[in-house]
Nucleic acid binder design. Structure first.
Lengths: 143, 143
DNA sequence: GATGTTTATGAAAATCACTTTCATTACCAT
DNA sequence: ATGGTAATGAAAGTGATTTTCATAAACATC
């Protein structure tokens, strides 16, 4: 899996005439080893712990590149932080977010997706993407 | 309807031991007369046109109060602006957002809501709220 | 109505989370 | 090794809030 993502990125780099750098490799390594939903800040702190010479701006720019390359996706949970999640080919999922501890669980539901398409169609919209988040208490926080 | 909302707010003010002020009345008036999705900036500009003496901070703080009082709700469409929409008792709706012109259409779909509850339940979550936005091209922008 | 205590307001400063700038480095195809 | 780009890091800049603080308005209570 990691191998595939790395290839995806190096191909992207090559295709775009960009350069392969130590920093990008390092950041990709940390991103792939990370939880599925990281803010720039979170990833930056993890990276900086081992590589104090890598700056925030580089992490920021590299994450944008990952998104462009198709191996990450920006998401917003309304807490003022942009997060990046891993993208796996052909996979789309939505989120359950715990309002107490912040736990994020992913889920997929084809039936809901189909209904969304119908709603859009009935309003004459042509859907590109969607976002669905369910906020509440996770099993642990319900005690 | 407006009457009900005003009472809701004045009751809230009283309950919290806050004060009724000319500014708050004015801002509420403009909010109730507005489109359903206003950013702070948009409402501020509308208010300022008639009441140049009311500051941005007051609009900002008052909108937060409306949300607390339950007559407005904060929403984010990922464009970096916090918007406030009207809350009507017992009503929940989701949004279709045009990615070209920004048009926002509201919709409700009980079947989807039910499926969301089932998803949540299957993961042991107790849902408080949810957010669902479908992004794409509106009929006009599809040409 | 005057007064005293609180809360509210407006202007300006401060925050926050990015984004961009720019002088300096690092890549990499000769 | 070298010349031409692209990348990096530190710092400055942005945009949208959010907070601070001196002043003004409410709302009891005289």
């Amino acid at each position: 899996m990691k191998r595939v993502k790395k290839k995806l990125f190096s191909d992207f780099i090559a295709r775009k005439g960009l350069k392969s750098t130590r920093q990008r490799d390092t950041i990709l390594e940390f991103f792939l080893a990370s939880d599925r939903h990281m803010s720039i800040e979170e990833l930056y702190l993890k990276v900086r712990a081992k590589h104090p010479n890598i700056g925030y701006a580089t992490v920021y720019r590299t994450l944008k590149l990952f998104a462009e390359a198709g191996l990450a996706r920006e998401i917003q949970f309304g807490d003022g932080q942009t997060r990046y999640e891993h993208v796996n080919e052909g996979e789309h999922h939505d989120h359950l977010v715990c309002t107490r501890c912040g736990t994020i669980v992913e889920f997929e539901n084809p039936v809901i997706e189909k209904l969304q398409d119908e709603v859009a169609k009935s309003h004459g919209f042509l859907i590109e993407t969607h976002k669905m988040e369910l906020y509440g208490l996770c099993p642990k926080c319900r005690k």
